[in-house]
Amino acid sequence: MIMKNYLKFIKLNEESITPKYLQIYNAFLAAVESNQLEVDDVLPSINDLSIALDVARNTVERAYRQLKNFGVVDSVPGKGYYICKVDFTHPIKVLLLFNKLSNHKKIIYDALVARLGEFGVIDFYIYNNEINVFRKIIESKADSYDKVVIIPHFFDEEESTYKLIETINKDKLVLVDKLIKEVNGDFCAVYEDFQKDIYGALVELKDRLNNYKTIKIIFPANSYYSKNILEGFINFCVHHSFDYEILSNLKNEVMMEGTVYINLREDDLIELIEQLISTNLVLGQNVGIISYNETPIKKIILNGITTISTDFMMMGETAADMIMSGCKSHVSIPFKVTQRNSV
Rank of each mutant, 00 (worst) to 15 (best):
I2D: 12
N5Q: 07
L12Y: 05
L12C: 05
N13E: 14
Q23L: 02
A27C: 09
F28N: 05
V32M: 15
L43D: 13
N47Y: 14
D48W: 10
L49A: 01
I51D: 07
D54Q: 13
N58G: 00
V72G: 02
V73G: 05
V73F: 13
G78C: 11
G80L: 08
D87M: 14
F88A: 10
K93R: 15
L97D: 03
F98Q: 02
N103F: 11
L112T: 00
R115H: 06
I122K: 08
I126Y: 05
N129A: 06
K136S: 13
K136F: 12
I138T: 12
D143W: 05
Y145T: 05
D146N: 15
E157R: 15
E158P: 00
N169P: 09
V174T: 08
E182N: 14
F187A: 02
C188G: 12
V190P: 00
V190N: 01
Y191F: 14
Y191N: 03
F194Y: 08
Y199T: 03
D207Y: 07
D207T: 12
D207M: 10
D207R: 10
T214R: 08
I215C: 13
I217S: 07
A221W: 04
K227S: 11
L230C: 05
G232S: 07
N235E: 08
V238H: 04
H239P: 00
Y244F: 15
Y244K: 06
L250D: 13
L250R: 10
V260A: 01
Y261R: 14
L264D: 08
R265D: 02
E266N: 10
I273Y: 09
L276V: 05
S278Q: 14
N280P: 00
N280S: 10
V282L: 06
L283K: 06
G288L: 14
I290L: 05
Y292W: 12
N293R: 00
K298E: 07
K299G: 02
I301P: 06
G304Q: 09
G304R: 06
T306R: 06
T307F: 04
I308F: 04
I308H: 00
E317T: 07
A319Y: 04
K328V: 03
S329E: 12
S332P: 00
P334F: 01
S342L: 03
